[in-house]
Design a protein around this nucleic acid. Sequence first.
DNA 1: AACCCTTCATAGCTTAGGGCTATTGCAGAC
DNA 2: GTCTGCAATAGCCCTAAGCTATGAAGGGTT
Lengths: 323, 323
Amino acid sequence: MKGCLGDANAYTTSDDMELRHLRYFVAVADTLNFTKAAETLHLAQPSLTRQIQNLEEEIGVRLLNRSKKHVALTEEGRAFLIDARRMLVLVAESIQAVQRLSRGETGQLNIAYSSNFSFDLLPQTLGAFRQSHPHVALNLFDMTPAEQFRALEAHKIDLGFVGLRVSAANRHLQWACIARHKTVVVLPTKHPLARKSRIRLDDLKSMFFVGMSEKNHPGFREWLSQTCQPAGFTPRILQDADLEPALMTFVAEGLGVTLAREQIRNLPHSGVAFRPLTPPVHSDYWIAWNRDNETTALRQYIEVIKSLTGAFSNGFEKAATSV
Amino acid sequence: MKGCLGDANAYTTSDDMELRHLRYFVAVADTLNFTKAAETLHLAQPSLTRQIQNLEEEIGVRLLNRSKKHVALTEEGRAFLIDARRMLVLVAESIQAVQRLSRGETGQLNIAYSSNFSFDLLPQTLGAFRQSHPHVALNLFDMTPAEQFRALEAHKIDLGFVGLRVSAANRHLQWACIARHKTVVVLPTKHPLARKSRIRLDDLKSMFFVGMSEKNHPGFREWLSQTCQPAGFTPRILQDADLEPALMTFVAEGLGVTLAREQIRNLPHSGVAFRPLTPPVHSDYWIAWNRDNETTALRQYIEVIKSLTGAFSNGFEKAATSV
DNA sequence: AACCCTTCATAGCTTAGGGCTATTGCAGAC
DNA sequence: GTCTGCAATAGCCCTAAGCTATGAAGGGTT
């Protein structure tokens, strides 16, 4: 695969043949007339003659039989012509392919999301992007946020719908806030506070909390603390849940209350009540990707996401996208 | 396939990309280090830097991310690297293929012969050639001499075991005499002359002859006349045969006598006798090929033929091969 | 035969650009 | 901070690709 440095044979395959020679040779072979070929190449005939001579000398094989008056391909010339055409086609196609790639028209996007927190933005953005970029392959992966961060670091995915922004994360990460969700209090139905239709943060000051494990949901504790900070307390977390269903169970069993995005209501639940906060508190939803992995397709997908989110919650993404 | 002259897109696929750019790019991609890549290319680093810049500018796509200190491939770079390697491999392989072709190691040989005149030289030469040139494809075609001449003219075959040399033929033909056969008189068994064990040409002066049709065996009449000329007569041909079996039948039926190579005895015959001439008369056996079609493989096959024929009948081929 | 036309090869000049050296500028490492 | 490693830039040189002019050799025409 590499340079074949030590190989004596590789040396015979002359290193100063160039595509120019192939282009010229094909032109001559097409017309079997140096003068006409030179014209179509916008070239003087002696230059062409010389280059073809160089080519033949280079590979050590006579490709053309020139009798004054008639030019004909030799057997070798016929064989080489086929290959020369193939090479030129391959060159042109490769360039076009890479250009399409750089325009975001082709490529792959590996996207991770958390199924536990299904929200309708993902399919919506995928649909819109697929329409404008039909030749980009979209590969979806269901991962916990922690898995997403690892996959981002290992370059296994290009974009993660991670939810919470993590301050301590890999500094190569790029972030964008794509939604702002209402935060709700999750508490047992038989909890005294459940009788109130709206709950103040302050009401939660002395409560025990159930949290999401750092192992699966990095940033949850930090987010919870920051959310409660305006009320002047730090939530005391008694128990961690690995996944959202466990969180619901723990709350139902009275191990504590918690805060979550209002989408958590979509999860199946029993014995659990949801109450809005008053005044309302919002939680930003973030996506993350690798700064050094900014494919055009990725950038354009993020643009699609932004334009869609901007449509239903305008005004905040300017601040959000700034790192 | 051709130049795609009118196509606007073809213009974007820049015409001054060269294999050099690919070689350099692959080197850089291999090491991800301009300085080291330049070394392995026996090149100064600034030159390499410039060429890679040119390449990127040329195709309009950033292939490498250079942060001072680290060089990395972009998505586009990864894609292009694969193609670049493919192209360079194709170039090297094409050159080697055409070189093998020019050394006669590969290729095709289309060879025609006349089955009616099977003589052991053809299989013998094929066997020897196959051993020294195992990768040359040998295609055999059974044709009458006339068909061979037409096929030679149409470049459908590369070499014909035509037998008789034809003076009026295509002037692009090249000839070689590869054997000298004894000429025998073919006559009915009940013919008075059949009682003699040896016949003088002179004995045939007043006979009627059976010949081979010009349509299938061009040159036969000429050969017959020239053979009889030393005896001072021109054979009178009453009847032409299209193929050798018919010739035998005609002779057996008493339509006339004829002359032929002694190999004609190998054909099934009844009512026909063969008698040597005294003094002995010889007939040269010729092969023919196109002067403008002299593949190396063909040339080497002819060499094999000559060396084999030279082994059992030395001395005559010098004169014979001269046109 | 004389002539012209076509076409490839050669000679010699010009110049673009590929390569070189020297240097800068930046980012990590110590 | 200083040192080191490495890519980019600046500016010069010289190879070689391109040009014009000319030669030479067939083929066709008169």
